[in-house]
Nucleic acid binder design. Structure first.
Lengths: 269, 269
DNA sequence: TACGAGTGTATCGTACAGCGATACATTGTC
DNA sequence: GACAATGTATCGCTGTACGATACACTCGTA
């Protein structure tokens, strides 16, 4: 039985450290930490692995896993060889998507956009230094796992990220660049701060952002930002295609106006 | 700012009661219960509402919410009017989908199926008395919210549910029918035990299950079961279309063989 | 077939984490 | 301007969750 690679580019948590907060319930934190262990996992985990990864004793892990299992948030693997995330998680997924007003507003527009664009269309939301995909409308050729809800990518080297940064002050942009662990995800990934700033500036001028093979070989993507009424960027709309079918110029000429229209429709309520 | 209806047909948990289990950490249970409060919510919740819904005191709710907020599993509403689920939830969504072997195996087949079928294609997984949608490939006309990952439907009155029941013993089927809270979700919903058993029997003979407007007006759906090597049904593949474009006969003639093929391809590893 | 290293499970006395009542500060609604 | 909501903070007591340890079981290997 094969399991899918982790392949998570963005830094997951960052969750700034919390200590000696009288309202902070550490049992809950541990539970979430145990669940988060799976972020790094490529296969079902054993109790000891969970304990080790979470920096807790075996007993603690035992209790937490036991409890989460009772509740359906953790399951035994089909072959009874380890623990995997449980299906109850999906209930919360639905709640999140349903109660996020941006997703709610964006969705019909996104569907409409997908009708006019035969390429992949995504909606991503900003979370710290990364963008998390909340809705993904696949094009025909992709694999499902390239388009998972919940997948996240770094801000510094993606079209969506740059679209978002374009709506920030230079200071904020610098801070993001600074705090991001920049690495060459592909050979084409731009990691140099000055170069990133230039791409952001370019996005400001064009009204959309462009990224070429910076996260995935052969992929071209453009994005436009979704902003709150006060101008704060909240996420982005992406259109992604293959360089085997498009060159950068024609891709932009064709899709930039559509992406811009869509973002505009969403941004003015 | 509008929020999406809850519209959850299936009974969410069932989570059999647990008492005085020495390994059971109630703080964790409370955390999950707080998160589950959103299942029933149509709008951002206040602390008091959360406390009341969870049957806990205000202080307890305060601590739990505070903690979950620190960790990113709960956020303040955009207008700062209440609490909503946080984005960190999506990270776990990804883990679940990625580490579920059935989803992994089924996905490519599903994509292929969608290519040949211009209608909506879904993958659902069984959880007790309900089916939870794990992957949804929209057709052109639907709204996004009709096709949310994590949405769940009852087994007793859906095509997928009947496909699943078709692979169970009569006793098991009866138990499901018995324990389900059967109500007429639409006027066409079949709630009579004998009638349900007949539909299951029909599914056994045909190799696929059919449901007409039992959950959604105007919707026709057929489904085939996904089974474990030992024969236990784990979920189903659905193809759903509109009765404004199809009559039942031609829908089945056209799609039943495709659905059968797809399920077959998945079931033999 | 016997070993041993790895699983998951069960038990138990103790300390301190989390409990809940209560009081306060802030908002916006009538 | 008074009121009924909201979210926030404080504080002693108690019972929950802690972690060490011992056990049962399933593997793969020798």
């Amino acid at each position: 039985m094969r399991y899918i690679q982790k392949a998570e580019y963005g830094v997951p948590p960052s969750t700034s450290i919390d200590e000696s907060d009288p309202l902070f319930v550490q049992a809950i934190a541990r539970a979430m930490q145990v669940l988060s262990t799976f972020h790094e996992a490529g296969k079902p985990l054993t109790l000891n692995e969970i304990a080790a990864a979470g920096g807790m004793g075996k007993s603690a892990a035992q209790r937490v896993v036991h409890t989460l299992r009772q509740l359906g948030y953790i399951d035994r693997d089909a072959d009874d060889r380890g623990y995997v995330p449980g299906i109850r998680i999906l209930d919360h997924t639905r709640d999140y998507l349903r109660m996020n007003p941006l997703v709610a507003r964006a969705s019909p527009v996104l569907m409409e956009l997908r009708r006019n664009v035969r390429e992949r269309v995504d909606l991503s939301l900003r979370d710290g230094l990364r963008l998390v995909y909340a809705a993904r409308l696949q094009s025909k050729r992709e694999t499902f796992f390239a388009t998972l809800v919940g997948q996240s990518v770094p801000i510094y080297c993606t079209s969506g990220g740059r679209a978002v940064m374009a709506h920030m002050s230079d200071a904020e942009v610098d801070e993001i660049i600074e705090r991001s662990v920049r690495r060459e995800i592909t050979p084409k990934t731009i990691t140099d701060p000055a170069a990133i700033r230039a791409k952001v500036q370019e996005a400001r001028e064009n009204g959309y952002a462009l990224a070429l093979e910076e996260v995935l070989q052969g992929e071209i993507a453009i994005a436009t930002a979704l902003v709150a009424p006060d101008g704060t960027p909240l996420g982005a709309i992406h259109i992604a295609g293959s360089l085997s079918e498009w060159d950068a110029d024609s891709f932009c000429r064709r899709f930039a106006p559509l992406a811009g229209e869509a973002a505009g429709a969403i941004n003015r309520f």
